[in-house]
Design a protein around this nucleic acid. Structure first.
Lengths: 298, 298
DNA sequence: GCGTTTACTGTAAGCGCTTTCAAACCGAAA
DNA sequence: TTTCGGTTTGAAAGCGCTTACAGTAAACGC
């Protein structure tokens, strides 16, 4: 029997099998886009996770193009996958609700469940990571006027990092100063623009906490163009510890976020959800302080 | 009619449709693994390309795990995709031949067609890029003893870069010296190990041409650990111009390879092949010299 | 030896769609 | 009114698989 199968090198037809079993053996990943340093490691983790569990991976970016005719399409759904990994805000709440009502397995990555939905999430310990970082800047490096350059509006990772920042300030009796907050984005350009706006304000700044390393790169650039030395004139720290960070000039103090592990873990939860219907409601992966020269450390 | 469809929010079942039409509306991407800085931009290009053309993207890594039970599986094939994008050597020649005989649309990325098969390929102008780079090192910077740190055995990108290197030497009457060749790999670790082996030989070296930027990073590290200054004691150049390169210390002289464009172009060729059965046999995307401080330029 | 359970094999239905083909329909020309 | 071309509509077949079920054979206990 198997010999015959081998001889004819037969392989079953996934579409037919999918039709009959009503399972696709495929997991879907929904992203807004694939840009920035973040996605390489994340994809690596996700791909590894799906493969280890014998699933295929279908990727879809929901980002619209300039002048595209097609309306918002939810290309990935119960029809072509057994479960969905949803990154941040790549799927709107209505679709999330629909999938939830349909009891379709979904795991959220770096985004929490909309109220009432109880969808499992995987993210980092953003708050405590930021807390450790700012504690260090205050206690060890002696900075008091620390600016926060936030990520994109509505990004939860950025929100919790800001909460950690505020908590650290409060714990050391430093009043929160709104003029030290500037919105940025999770990329180099926005980081650079953000720091320029910050400098125009002419408030004293000891250190800048960029919401992620990508934007910290822009901050370094912006400061260099403004003729300021890092860390002598102003210290810079980021979050994520992407591969570039240790190669920057100066090497960037940051918080290491296990990006790849988060991807793998999200798949693990999703596979559990698909197979046994259970998953942990919230998984927060630990972060770790990484001290380099950009904060003034030797 | 459409109102009813809207009202019931009906959406067709891809598996059933696939069964009936014998088309999947999906393109497959076969990789060995997703590591290194190269894959981010490449995936970005490929994803954009597939989406613009209304196809889905299925990704599969053929890399084996330690002690995995499953034999070499060709998860992606005529059953679940309308065409395949094959990156370098992620698929063996036998499978390539089988797909070719079955007239299944395949486009190769950074790898040329096995003899007799005539499968379309998309790659960079590696040879002329390397030629420009080495010409510059010889003519402008005056180096004569330039080492080449090759990529992984059998990698065509590396092969053609070496050919460009040799051509440049020959054109300037510099004899090819095998002791200046060292094998490395397309990653940091291998680059570092390669440069250490090179230094142990105690041949005079003016400059090191690493086959890609990832390994050039390892070279920089290796030289730093050996107490050598770049570019004062020894110059270093790479190939690809990945995002890190300009942030390195010193910033890396390299050749810009349009990684993302190559991905997008490969999809374009594949879509043509799927839709009209035609594609260009070979597309080589132009590369561009990027001069930074690591080669001794100010 | 017979009735009963267990195992195995084969058959048919059906998954949700496309596609083909035939039948029905409609308007225009004879 | 009849006839013909063209269009619309409906029904049926089939894509390649799974699965449930019936049917047959084999094994078992009394």
């Amino acid at each position: 029997m198997w010999a015959v199968i081998e001889a004819l090198n037969y392989s079953p037809h996934p579409a037919a099998r999918g039709l009959a079993t009503r399972r696709t053996n495929t997991l879907g990943l929904v992203l807004r886009d694939i840009s920035g340093e973040f996605f390489g490691p994340m994809l690596r983790g996700i791909e590894a996770g799906t493969r280890e569990n014998g699933f295929d991976l279908l990727i879809h970016c929901t980002n619209r193009f300039e002048g595209d005719a097609t309306p918002a399409q939810y290309a990935l759904s119960e029809h072509n996958s057994d479960g969905l990994l949803v990154f941040t805000d790549s799927l709107d709440e209505a679709e999330l609700r629909r999938l939830y009502r349909a009891q379709f397995p979904v795991v959220l990555l770096h985004r929490s469940s909309p109220p009432g939905l109880n969808i499992p999430c995987v993210s980092f310990e953003n708050k405590s990571g930021a807390r450790k970082l700012i504690d260090y800047l205050i206690e060890v490096r002696g900075y008091r006027r620390i600016a926060f350059l936030a990520g994109p509006e509505g990004t939860e990772d950025s929100y919790w990092r800001e909460m950690g920042y505020r908590e650290a300030l409060a714990a050391h009796g430093i009043a929160f100063d709104p003029t030290l907050i500037e919105v940025g984005g999770f990329d180099e350009i926005q980081g650079k623009m953000g720091v320029k706006r910050l400098l125009e304000r002419e408030t004293a700044v000891d250190a800048i906490f960029a919401a992620d390393d990508d934007s910290a790169i822009g901050v370094l650039e912006g400061l260099r163009e403004a003729g300021l030395r890092v860390p002598e004139d102003i210290a810079v720290v980021g979050f994520d510890d992407i591969r570039l960070s240790k190669h920057l000039t100066p090497p960037l103090t940051t918080v290491r976020a296990p990006i790849e592990t988060a991807g793998r873990e999200a798949v693990r939860q999703l596979v559990n959800l698909v197979r046994s219907g259970t998953a942990e409601r919230l998984v927060l992966l630990p972060t770790e302080l990484v001290i380099r020269h950009s904060c003034g450390a030797p």
